[in-house]
């Protein structure tokens, strides 16, 4: 039987924006298609479980700092997992931890894993509001992602690193270059929560497909009834456009 294994990193610390909603959506969309679903938590000091998808959410500043060192110590293991075909989804604070680190205003610097070539620095104001972006994860198939952003960090991608999408409405990575999030291979990072996946079921399915490839190759995913999801997406996009 096809099965998907998820590792939820620091579920006790990084969960501020209802991150369990993302996990619930992945579970629902797998189980509806008879794909067995298993999620394992990994806290500070725990051995890193083998998984098809590693999930990192956002936390309060204090909680984020509390786990940053532990995560950085696992950078090699995470890199090996990604090289072995595992996918990563990192949201908000988790997204910042994917990069080289966070430069705070005064002494509140935070190290990063360096898994992706990006860096974040504290900005003078928080970027808060509804957001919509346009992505093209599969060439020739543009889609939108909708949600909410709330971050003080300004994230800058390294030379040649692609954002997850282009901002239609909202701030994005830094409010200046029009990019939002990051995508390299099967590694996704984004400031968009809401949570991210419920209103963007196509992205949830993309992640399920990308994660399954490691052990199961290309798996055809039957369509599900997404009438409510589509309506919620449409309303959120309209609200984001209204500013």
């Amino acid at each position: 039987m096809t099965d998907l294994r998820i590792c939820h990193l620091y579920p006790e610390h990084l969960n501020i924006y209802a991150d369990r909603g993302n996990i619930a959506v992945l579970r629902y969309r797998c189980e509806r298609r008879d794909i067995a679903f298993a999620v394992r938590g990994c806290g500070p000091g725990d051995p890193l479980p083998e998984a098809d998808l590693y999930y990192l959410g956002g936390g309060q500043d204090r909680d984020q700092v509390a786990v940053a060192g532990d995560l950085v110590a696992r950078s090699g293991d995470l890199r090996a997992a990604v090289d072995g075909g595992a996918a990563v989804l990192a949201v908000c604070g988790g997204y910042q931890l994917l990069g080289h680190g966070y430069r705070g205003h005064a002494g509140d610097d935070m190290p990063g894993t360096g898994l992706v070539d990006l860096v974040t620095e504290a900005g003078p104001t928080r970027m808060i509001g509804n957001i919509a972006i346009r992505c093209e994860l599969d060439p020739g198939r543009p889609r939108t992602v909708v949600g909410f952003e709330n971050h003080a960090g300004r994230t800058h991608l390294g030379e040649g690193v692609e954002p997850l999408g282009q901002v239609l409405h909202g701030h994005g990575n830094n409010g200046a270059d029009g990019g939002e999030g990051v995508r390299t291979g099967r590694v996704l990072g984004t400031y968009i929560h809401g949570p991210l996946l419920p209103k963007n079921p196509w992205l949830a399915d993309w992640l399920v497909g990308a994660s399954l490839e490691r052990r199961h190759g290309t798996v055809a995913l039957d369509p599900l009834d997404d009438a409510l999801e589509s309506e919620a997406h449409r309303v959120a996009e309209r609200i984001a456009a209204a500013g």
């Binding site: 959506v25 629902y28 419920p198 209103k199 409510l228 309506e231 919620a232 609200i239």
Partner: peptide, 18 residues
């Protein structure tokens, strides 16, 4: 409410019969 469909979607995932 302004997010009526989103609320229904949440309840669907909570196990309320659509």
């Amino acid at each position: 409410g302004t997010r009526a469909a989103e609320m229904a979607m949440r309840l669907k995932y909570a196990g309320v019969d659509p």
